[in-house]
Nucleic acid binder design. Sequence first.
DNA 1: CTCTCCCT
Length: 831
Amino acid sequence: MKFPITPLLPQILEALEHNTRLVLEAPPGAGKTTQVPPALLEAPWLDGKRILLLEPRRIAARAAATFMAGQLGEAVGRRVGYAIRFESRLSAATRIEVITEGLLTRRIQDDPALEDVGAILFDEFHERHLAGDLGAALALDVQAGLRPDLRLVVMSATLDGERIAQWLDAPRISSPGRSFPVRIEHPPARAQESTEQHLARTVRQALAEIEGDVLAFLPGQREIARATRLLDEQLDADIEVLPLHGELALADQQAALAPADDARRRVILATNVAESSVTLPGIRAVVDSGLARVPQFDPNSGFTRLRTVTVARDSADQRAGRAGRVAPGVAYRLWPQSQRLDAERIAEIAQAELSGLALELAAWGHDALPWLDPPPSGALAQARDLLRRLGALDAEHRITALGRAMHALGATPRLAAAVTRANEAQHGLMADLLALLDARSPLRGEHARNDDFRQRVQALHVWRDGGASAARRFGADAGALAAIERAARGWRQRIGARAAASGTPHSHAVGDLLAHAFPDRIAMQVEGQPLRYQLSNGRGARLHEATALLGEPWLVVLDLRLESRDSLIFAAAPFDPALLQRDYGERFVTQRAVRWNADREAVEAFEERRFDALVLERRSVPVRAEDALPALLARVRERGLESLPWSDAARRLRARIQALRGWMPESGLPDVSDDTLLATLETWLGPYLDGKRKLDALSAAELSQALVALLDYGQRQQLDAQAPEALTVPSGRTHKLVYTPDAPPVLAVKLQELFGLADTPRVGGGRVPVTLHLLSPAGRPMQVTQDLAGFWERTYPEVKKELKGRYPKHPWPDDPWSATPTHRTRRHAGR
DNA sequence: CTCTCCCT
């Protein structure tokens, strides 16, 4: 049997003769997985040691070992064996050992010199799983320090291995694949067309243009369900539409995979499972939405959320390649040809939760590893906080004895922490929880919506006690439970459980164990709001309307969807809050807290007993001045300056200061604009709020004082002289000046009162003529002017005639310059 | 009321 890679095997051997690292690029079907490891067996540098072949998936590890053993005409477990979690077929004779990526880390941690290993081959490295990246970094570290002879081969399906070759400082060898050409098309979307409509229309186009089956890629279950509905309506009955995603029962997946026996053509609507995990025969056309859902860890909340993203070019090429396995095919891409995709997918290490990685690094002893992409510092810091909280690290981020025990368990740090807290009688149940939390829910149909995690435990126990039919009656998938039981059996052995748990666990038993895994996700019901909870990390959460957990005051939240306000709880378990005091006593604090009471518009102080962000008890205590002042000032900032009790006099004072500051910048008067006063509340208003508890305790007089206090004595004198509150006119009466921003002040005065005044009065150091609103004897506005001399000269003679007619009892002299000013009639003036 | 894929 010949593979495309076969002629390259001598070149690969030759390269590894002179280099300890090699990048091998080969597309699927080239034979790299099964042909390279046996070819290396007789290499002199191997020196009788083993070859490790890393696979990202368990199925792939089993399949590769089975195929290679068959090539040698042997059973698995002789010269070729495999190991995955809780399952291995190995012997003393084994020379090629196929293992899953996660196991390499454990091997290296247990034996840093890798005594019996001569070469490590990383298969499908382009998938960039966290365990693969960590394993490669550790292996490089081992090679640099302890094992310069160790051979490392990174195998990748991507065509651009340049970056990996530079990282490894290694030569590259490329192999052709065994695939048929795939034509790429970009059918455009119509206006207002949804992704699913576009996809359904293109699937019909593909069925018309190409023979064979069609594989379509969509980001998730929701989109698959919508597209299935559309296609079921649009397609003839002789075409079968099959959904394919990770949550489907095993039987459904098999149905999608098995070759169609009735010759019906098939349309398979799949998530990313079909990109790498599942091989589908007979596909001639691929329709690619270009979308995928990926988890993204948010270091701020400590939660992971799913985001829909555009795939990278390497993913799109891999998806397209599915159409060319049996014959030439077509890939229809639902994005514009002009759209640029990223070259490579984002490595898992760049956006995943990192507590497992952080624990590995702590166990390794240093974290200056030769990463292809280093773990981001924010996520790593959050991971270390969690590990400290779980007791795995000390304050200096060194691993503790408990941390070593957790590491040895090989579970996630959260669950490992729960195992170390469990007593012997709880080990059977703990093993069930380890298996159940690692798997998708075994519940189906309406039961799948049950948010009480204990229901899943119950399903496992029903299956264990009553078999598959009992499990089905309970609403669970027996196949899924069988897989969960295999894992649970493995955990029972590892943690030393004497017997499997059965029956109905005590109501708090599940939650009490899991509270030790999720101490930062403790939820306390909000008083008076049955569905709302406060989380110990400070965020809010809620149960859905049809919850099975109604009325539970305390929950451990195992799964939720992060939302800006209250996140939605998908799975939780009730627990006994007494264990918080017993096991996390050090996290309880009693503190004073100061709050603004919006109803009373007043500051309140409390003494609170808290577990992290959860307030368990609260009692009122007297407010201290140093507590109240910042709260009061913050409240003023929130509501604005207009909320303060300004008197008319204070408003005028502000206007005068601001006006004179503009006219005479040399006066050094302070800026009393809204922005500046709000920014400097502490200095000018603070002293007048000191000792107060409520905002309305501030009087208008105090506010005026606060404003006046901004000026020194000289500035006050200057203000009174140059921006006076009022002017005295020739009649002897005093009239207020009205100040408005960016305009001269206005003086409203009866014309007769100004007799004898030759020119316009001025303010602002003589720079600003007052705007005169000249009034009739009845107080009616007659004329607006800033030029009084001109008025007397030109306008007054005309105005006078009219005024004489309308107001005969008043004096209207011909010579207003020398006339006696008055506000009265002639009769009064005569006395 | 909902979530891609995988692993020690």
